[in-house]
Design a protein around this nucleic acid. Structure first.
Length: 188
DNA sequence: CTTACGATTCCC
DNA sequence: GGAATCGTAAGG
């Protein structure tokens, strides 16, 4: 088991390398852009917290396709955005947990639809919040996020040398102690 | 069909 | 700390 897990480091590496990149969302009114600041890795078939742990289901279909595609699902009233990170045939993925708004902030506030004027750092600081702010729904399920022509994609960010903090994943009950949550160290 | 259950957010 | 809330998955 340990050997298999070690060979699945690719998904973890994807989670780390997504930090500091731009998440871009094109809508009719304009282009929204944000910096990815927090991610979580879900390693696939050997990860008890992964949606594919108990086998494939219709919901996880995209995870068995090529990497770099949007795996979106609904949690309570919110949508959550993942990127498929299949490596060596294993359906891993990376959850985008938090982003820092850069362009289209006014529109993000509208999509978030709160009565108050939210501070910038509270517009998209959560996996459900960022999908709301960027108007990401099941309509974007399966989107190729490596393609700049997509309505939702990832591009290189300003830097690649951020210091990264790793912690246990949060909001789950299984394998919480696995250090697969990654954040940009703001001191770095 | 029925039931159980959250990779959340917001409010008390 | 607790409620809201709804799609998914599994079982009858």
């Amino acid at each position: 088991m340990m050997k298999e897990i070690l060979s699945e480091k690719d998904t973890e590496n994807v989670a780390r390398s997504l930090l500091g990149r731009y998440l871009v969302r094109k809508v009719r009114e304009g282009t929204l852009r944000a910096l990815i600041s927090e991610t979580e890795a879900y390693l696939g078939v050997h990860d008890p917290a992964s949606h594919v742990f108990h086998g494939p289901t219709p919901r996880t279909k995209v995870l068995y396709g090529p990497p770099g595609h949007a795996y979106i699902y609904q949690m309570h009233r919110y949508h959550l955005l993942n990127i498929s990170a299949e490596s060596k045939g294993n359906p891993g993925c990376v959850l985008i947990r938090s982003v820092v708004p850069l362009d289209g902030i006014k529109l993000m506030r509208v999509y978030r639809n709160r009565g108050e004027e939210l501070p910038v750092n509270e517009i998209a600081n959560g996996p459900g919040k960022l999908c709301q702010a960027l108007n990401i729904t099941m309509d974007q399920y399966g989107t190729d996020m490596t393609d700049p022509n997509s309505e939702l994609f990832i591009t290189e960010g300003p830097r690649k040398d951020y210091k990264i903090i790793a912690t246990g994943r949060i909001g789950i009950s299984k394998a919480k102690d696995w250090k697969l949550r990654f954040l940009i160290d703001m001191e770095g």
